[in-house]
Design a protein around this nucleic acid. Structure first.
Lengths: 204, 204
DNA sequence: ACGTTGCTATAACATTGTTATCACGGCGTC
DNA sequence: GACGCCGTGATAACAATGTTATAGCAACGT
């Protein structure tokens, strides 16, 4: 990635995954969760999966391809978590529930979260497809926002920008919490709750 | 850093900087700004400064020492930007001005910002001193918050947690803006303004 | 039964952070 | 003023990384 070739794309979407391929992905995910991003090396992934390094290249086109899969998997899980919130009669409560699901995902998958939002793998850039998926996740939130607007629970405005505002708020708090900036005396879950309610009342 | 030694600290605070040292730091900063974090290699830094690689080790103890200096420099600039806002008769307006200064810093120094808040250099962890400095920057904001509270412009609460809330909001929006997640149709400056005013009215 | 094809493992290469070796220059001492 | 020592810095060596090339091997088609 850094070295020889400058620009190239990973092999197509790869809808179906080989047994070895899924083993590699699982090994990479476990390695990332247990030993952090620095331990995510091609050789270690292959060793953990019990195969040779070449499989990483034949199946994923290189290390970045594996990271891309983790990136996508992360957004898939995040989207699943937010989608699991059933639409109730109180759209604002649903939005808050989505926000809590967002935080739960981040806290439960901190390394995955850092792959998605920190650029923890030095020169990995999401492909357009992955970018689109991230945008779709935002769209999921925008749908909820729009529903709340048509129900009159939220002041009418651009749903996408408003969803971005909500997302940014959630991301900001949980991001600082995960990075452990500032003194440890801060009650982050409380800050999260306060931020959520403030945004919601501000949007109402 | 990744290789031989596992744990070690960088040479003391280094209050005074050699001419070669400052050249190295400037070269590293320029390199980071121009070619991104992947280009921040020891050899390249040394070459750009016109000296040999050993100087990086004798003066900064390794690459992480240089990154640490950039990290600190970033927080210093951020603190300077926020400190430049003079205290007026309207403490809330001052806080908003601080928020705008925050965004300006991030937009003007995106790579520095990513060193500070993304873990863009794989396994660099801020030393306790750097951590403390980051906390002090938050304290700067907390002072303003406290002033606004005693003036009655903001509801009384824990200043530090409230400052963390403000910080997280600013960070969340600008972080997503810099990472270019989601569609490009979003008017991030507007989202930033909306988030700021919402937090402020929510805290009032 | 034989040739071809595709995959996998091993080894080579360029680049990285780091450490060791060594030469050279400035200082103190006689 | 000449000599020895120390310390600084440049060069080269080392371990580990992502990537690519080479070679072996098994399975398939004819």
């Amino acid at each position: 990635m850094t070295f020889a070739t400058a620009e190239r794309h990973y092999p197509a979407p790869m809808v179906q995954l080989d047994s070895v391929g899924s083993d590699l992905l699982k090994a990479a995910s476990d390695l990332l969760a247990s030993d952090g991003p620095a331990a995510l090396t091609v050789r270690r992934i292959a060793n953990a999966a019990g195969v040779s390094t070449m499989n990483v290249y034949s199946r994923f086109g290189g290390k970045d391809g594996v990271v891309e899969h983790l990136f996508i998997e992360g957004f898939r899980r995040l989207a699943a978590g937010m989608s699991s919130i059933a639409a109730s009669s109180d759209p604002v409560a649903d939005l808050i529930a989505c926000g809590l699901a967002y935080r739960r995902f981040a806290i439960d998958n901190p390394t995955l979260y850092s792959v998605m939002f920190d650029r923890v793998v030095p020169d990995y850039r999401p492909t357009p497809e992955a970018h689109l998926l991230a945008g779709a996740t935002l769209g999921l939130l925008a749908d909820r926002v729009e529903r709340a607007m048509t129900a009159g629970a939220l002041r009418s405005s651009d749903p996408l920008s408003t969803a971005a505002l909500v997302w940014a708020t959630c991301h900001g708090v949980v991001s600082l919490e995960l990075k452990e900036v500032g003194p440890t005396a801060i009650d982050w879950p409380d800050v999260y709750d306060r931020a959520m309610t403030m945004i919601m009342t501000g949007l109402a």
